[in-house]
C-alpha cells in the first residue's frame, strides 16, 4: 500500500485547519422588522430611602426609589393616607388594589385604588391601629401592591432610624388629637 506523500499530508492538514469553523448557513433575506430591544427589566424589589417633614398640621414622610415611591401623610386630623407612584404602566389606571406590608413588627394590608394617572392611594383612620401600621413601616419591611395589572416592584423599606422615630412623635400627637 502506498503511503501518502508528506507533501500531500501537509496540504490536507492545512486545508483542514482552514475549515475548522463550521460552515455558516446561507443568509436569508430579512423579511420582517427586527424585534424591539428588550426594555431594562424592572427589578422585583427596590430599596427606598426615607425622608421626613412636619408641614403645618401634617406629618409627611416618603420612601423614595426611582421605580417606586411611597408617601405617608398623617393629618390633618386623625386621618392618615398612603400614596404610591411608579413610573410607566406598572400600576393600572383606575382600579382597586391592596397595599401590603410585611416586616419585623408584623404585616397588614390596606385597600386602595389607583386614579386615572395610575397613582395609587389608600387611607386609614389615625387610631391605635393606624399608629401601629405607621410604626411597623418605620421599623422596616417590604411594601408591595397587589391587584390586577400591577407590575410594580416590591418596595423594600429600611428601618427609619432615629429620624423616623423622632418623626413618629408628630404622628402620635395627631393621633392623640393634639394637632400641631
Amino acid at each position: 500500500m502506498n503511503r501518502p506523500s508528506p507533501l500531500l499530508l501537509s496540504l490536507f492538514l492545512a486545508l483542514a485547519a482552514c475549515q475548522a469553523a463550521p460552515p455558516q448557513a446561507p443568509r436569508r433575506p430579512v423579511t420582517r422588522a427586527p424585534a424591539p430591544a428588550p426594555a431594562p427589566a424592572t427589578p422585583a424589589e427596590v430599596e427606598g430611602a426615607w425622608s421626613f417633614g412636619i408641614v403645618g398640621d401634617r406629618c409627611t414622610a416618603r420612601v423614595a426609589h426611582r421605580d417606586m415611591t411611597l408617601g405617608i401623610t398623617a393629618g390633618p386630623g386623625r386621618q392618615a393616607s398612603f400614596s404610591l407612584s411608579a413610573p410607566g404602566r406598572s400600576l393600572p389606571a383606575g382600579g382597586p388594589l391592596r397595599l401590603a406590608f410585611s416586616g419585623d413588627g408584623g404585616g397588614w394590608q390596606l385597600p386602595g385604588r389607583t386614579d386615572g394617572r395610575r397613582a395609587a392611594s389608600a387611607s386609614m383612620p389615625l387610631n391605635d391601629a393606624g399608629e401601629g401600621r405607621i410604626r411597623d413601616l418605620l421599623g422596616g419591611g417590604t411594601v408591595s401592591v397587589i391587584g390586577r395589572g400591577v407590575s410594580a416592584p416590591t418596595l423594600s423599606v429600611p428601618d427609619a432610624g432615629v429620624s423616623g422615630r423622632d418623626w413618629y412623635a408628630c404622628v402620635a400627637r395627631l393621633s392623640q388629637g393634639q394637632g400641631q
Partner: peptide, 14 residues
C-alpha cells in the same frame, strides 16, 4: 450614634 441613609434632625437624642 450612627446615622443611616437619613440624617436625623439637629437636636435629636436617642
Amino acid at each position: 450614634g450612627p446615622v443611616g441613609a437619613t440624617l436625623p434632625r439637629p437636636g435629636a437624642i436617642e
